[in-house]
Design a protein around this nucleic acid. Structure first.
Length: 438
RNA sequence: GACCCCAUCGUCUAGAGGCCUAGGACACCAGGUUUUCAUCCUGGUAACACGAGUUCGAAUCUCGUUGGGGUCGCCA
């Protein structure tokens, strides 16, 4: 029998990182086994389900490359099947009608638990059991005639021939109920795997307040889907050796429940960033520049005057300093606007110094006289000035860097000057002289 | 509160009784390279929650304690 897994999100907002990891594990396992990965939208909570939220789910999955097989099932269309199952249970005596009273709600349909102790095997947690007294009957159809989650969930899983249910830890308790329904309906019981939760930096469950918890936010912050995918897989699973940067095909080949952790894991944004850098290193340059340009556009730093050649040079000179796409705006914005901010600390350290203005002025003169303005020629010119003034080249390098970029950190100075070009460099030195030494 | 689950460096983890004076990665610190930053190289700090057992021997097995988490809806 071929393995069939599913991701069954309820579309009620953004896609949480914990949910998407469950989706990833479902996807990985199905691909590992050569089976199918299905999508079911559990949109029966009419109050909260919105088309936008459904689209958010689809977007997140698509971004991460979680392709699904077959047509997605919208749970709201399965109402008749759910109610038919309830009728069957009623007819078989495994369910009964009851007026639980209160607020004049009328009769609902209760599922009758077997009345015995229950147990099921979890692929990650091992054997889980529960005493009969802790397994009370529960509502499967509301008094208004609509099916409850437990019923719909199980009926749909039967309908979709799901063989493995991989979901969050928070469903462990539900599983006893679900197993009972499978049995009552005469359906084979799927295998279960409950994933530990992902907690925030305080070790607490993620809440709305925690940023970074939604898939879309990682995308906006400039992360690569491959990096997030790799990182998330490693959050709760390891291949058993020391490898960490594993491409998708390797993950598919290696993934296995026996190596899934059973304790909760914390996100470490710094490690995620490191991993993103690893993937950034091997990203084809056309994709890299496409994404970088998109960031500049949304930040309002892009304009038509930026030539493809200039843009290429900037990205080239920035090199591996761009670990996130947003770094191009955060660290290299001065390449795209003359109105760049001066970093206060850098100014204090490199400009507000004895002789800095004279040095800048001297360099400006030397640069102005250059016929060709390249990394080599500016390098030569700067060293000549240093020698002439009898100072260390660094005394000139640093002020020039801060003058033309506003910051003390950045690419090698001379290649950077070449990219900026003579006109810009001279104008920026003038501007700096005027602003800080006038 | 009841029931269930979990517990190795700051974080993610390796470890399925002797290979563990506990390994790797990120982060951090120090040094080297780089006239800045980053990269890169070298080195370093840092953990088996606690207590009893079982055993010749326990991070690994058992029990307890403590701490954390999940669930207890006519939400999903």
């Amino acid at each position: 029998m071929t393995v069939r897994t599913r991701f069954a999100p309820s579309p009620t907002g953004n896609v949480h990182i914990g949910n998407i990891r469950a989706a990833i594990y479902n996807w990985l396992y199905a691909r590992h086994e050569g089976g199918q990965f299905l999508l079911r939208i559990e949109d029966t909570d009419r109050e909260r389900s919105t088309p936008e939220a459904v689209q958010a789910v689809l977007n997140s999955m698509n971004w991460l490359g979680l392709n699904f097989d077959e047509t997605p099932v919208y749970q709201s269309t399965q109402l008749a099947a759910h109610l038919a199952a309830a009728e069957k249970l009623l007819a078989g005596g495994q369910a009964y009608k009851l007026d639980k009273g209160g607020a004049g709600k009328g009769e609902c349909i209760m599922f009758k638990m077997p009345g015995t102790d229950m147990a099921f095997h979890d692929e990650i947690k091992g054997d889980l059991r529960k005493a009969a007294k802790d397994l009370p009957d529960f509502v499967i159809v509301r008094s208004n005639g609509t099916p409850v989650f437990h019923l719909g969930n199980v009926v749909d899983d039967i309908d979709m021939n799901i063989t493995h249910i991989i979901r969050g830890d928070d469903h462990v308790e539900n599983t006893f109920r679900h197993v009972a329904i499978f049995q009552a309906l005469g359906a084979p019981i799927p295998k279960y795997a409950h994933l530990p939760m992902i907690v925030n930096a305080q070790g607490k469950p993620y809440s709305k307040r925690d940023g970074d918890a939604y898939v879309g936010e990682f995308r906006e912050k400039g992360y690569l889907p491959e990096a997030l995918f790799n990182y998330l897989v490693l959050l709760g699973w390891s291949p058993g050796d020391d490898r960490e940067v594993l491409v998708r095909d390797e993950l598919i080949r290696l993934f296995d429940f026996s190596r899934v952790q059973s304790s909760p894991a914390q996100m470490d944004m710094r490690k995620l960033q490191w991993m993103n850098g690893e993937y950034m290193k091997v990203l084809p340059s056309t994709l890299r520049s496409e994404q970088c340009r998109a960031v500049l556009q949304t930040r309002g730093l892009w304009h038509d005057g930026i030539s493809a050649d200039y843009f290429d040079q900037v990205l080239n000179v920035m090199g591996e300093r761009i670990r996130l796409f947003t770094d191009v705006a955060d660290q290299a914005g001065y390449f795209f606007t003359d109105n760049y901010p001066y970093d206060e600390k850098s100014v204090q350290k490199r400009l507000k110094k004895e002789g800095a203005s004279e040095s800048l002025a001297a360099i400006r003169e030397a640069f102005a006289g250059l016929e060709v303005f390249t990394a080599e020629s500016t390098d030569k010119a700067l060293h000549a000035v240093a020698e002439q003034k009898g100072i260390h080249p660094g005394e000139l390098v640093h002020p020039v860097r801060v003058a033309v970029s506003g910051t003390a950190a950045g690419p090698s100075l001379f290649p950077m000057l070449e990219v900026l070009g003579k006109n810009r460099v001279l104008a920026r030195i003038d501007q700096t002289l005027k602003q800080f030494f006038a």
